Computed example of a mutant assay.
Amino acid sequence: MHTRRLFLRAVAALAGLVGLALPAAAETITVTDIIGRTVKVEAPVKRIILGEGRQIYFVAALDRDAPFKRVVGWRDDLGKADPDSYKAYLARYPEIAKLPTFGGMKEGAFDVEQAISLKPDVLFLNIEAKVASDEAKLVEKLASVGIPVVYVDFREKPFEHTEPSMRLIGKLFGKEQIAEDFIRFRAEQIARVTDVLAKAGDVKRPLVMVERAGGYSDDCCMSFGDENFGRMTAIAGGRNLATPLIPGTFGTVNPEQIVAANPDVVIVTGGNWDAYVPGGNWVGLGEGADMTEARRKLVNLTKRPAFAQTQAVKDGRVHAIWHQFYNSPYQFVAIQRIATWLHPELFKDLDPDATMKTLHERFLPLPYRPGLWVSLGAGK
């Protein structure tokens, strides 16, 4: 009897070791995506299509060891909208040059047949693609061949949808704990701003004009309502000029409205957009960007009639920040940077560069390279 018990224990131990060595078996799970759809997916997913290349921002945070191991195809926007990140990933993972690419849903350039041929377990789409995907009946076409579509969002309503999007993707990847660790880190870093402001009490909140992609075109001026960078500004202790003027997330503020409001601070979002507007007046920001050139372009933008006579320009309180904070789960770093610009005395010990470096060290596969913001004067 004693020998039999030892034998059974050995068999059980061996089975346990085998179980540890094998990957988790796929099972059908039901998830609810960001627009409230219930979707059945075989998880953990092994083959994914990114409906936007910049979705690698969240994929890399969950699959740090091999951020492209599940990606079988992606939209071609990363190299155009954020070439600095694309080049950095390409240098580390040269195989991504061979990944099949897609055009955008909004442009009607998404190749359904190509998507089906790649046999993905799931297609991720951002919610701004929903209208176009509905018109093309994309969800129905893919469902007919057993490919589910899941909507996520880090752009339209990031302060409602970032956490549930990360949890959703974490569940699909079998990386729930990493997703929770990221969410906790994000909340802690935002609290480093909100806790200080709460303790300070009735602080003066400067009026801030946030210009979306300033210099991308000759038009003036795209901005944000009470979401995205507009909400980041409010969380950081400012008053967003465009909140009462733009009912949704995105919209336009007339130059005359900016002149009349006379903002205390101007913040321009920028990126390296040579692929879209070669030689444009945009402020070229991104990891490793040329800060001298970025500062030169920011100076030029302040000379436009909407800004030239504002208090912000007179006081040197003009800044530019990486545009892609608006489309990634990294918004908490932008909140810290904006807080240091709006309330330099309150946040003199807060170092957003250090926060970004920690983000990379803890969650991302690439080292951090500065180049995400630039200032002209006060509150550098």
Rank of each mutant, 00 (worst) to 15 (best):
T243V: 09
P94Y: 08
H343V: 04
V253Y: 06
R231K: 15
L245E: 02
D264W: 04
G73Y: 05
A198I: 05
Y57G: 00
E140Y: 12
V333L: 05
R37I: 05
A242H: 06
V259F: 08
D84K: 14
R37Y: 01
S144P: 00
E176V: 14
E128Q: 12
V208Q: 03
S217D: 11
F185E: 02
I35A: 10
E227A: 13
G230I: 00
N126I: 05
P305T: 12
E52A: 10
T28F: 00
G238M: 01
T101G: 07
P255F: 08
P367L: 11
P365Y: 06
A12M: 12
D218I: 06
L20E: 03
P67H: 10
E287N: 12
L366V: 12
H161P: 01
L123T: 10
G270W: 00
D274G: 13
F325E: 03
V318T: 04
Y93R: 11
P367S: 12
R337H: 08
G146N: 09
F224V: 04
A378Q: 12
L125Q: 06
P367D: 11
E135D: 14
F7S: 05
V203P: 09
P164M: 02
P83M: 10
N254R: 14
P305G: 12
A21M: 12
V265D: 07
A213V: 04
V31W: 07
F363G: 02
V122N: 03
Q189K: 13
R9K: 11
A143C: 05
F173E: 04
E160W: 00
G53N: 07
H319I: 04
L50C: 03
I96H: 05
K98V: 00
E163D: 15
R184A: 14
F185R: 00
P148G: 11
E256F: 10
P94K: 09
L22R: 06
R92H: 11
E227S: 13
I267P: 07
L342P: 12
A13N: 02
K87A: 15
G280A: 09
A191H: 13
T30Q: 15
F68R: 02
P44Y: 07
S375L: 05
R337E: 12
K69Y: 01
L62Y: 00
D351R: 06
R54E: 11
K157I: 05
V59M: 14
V71Y: 00
A242K: 05
K137E: 10
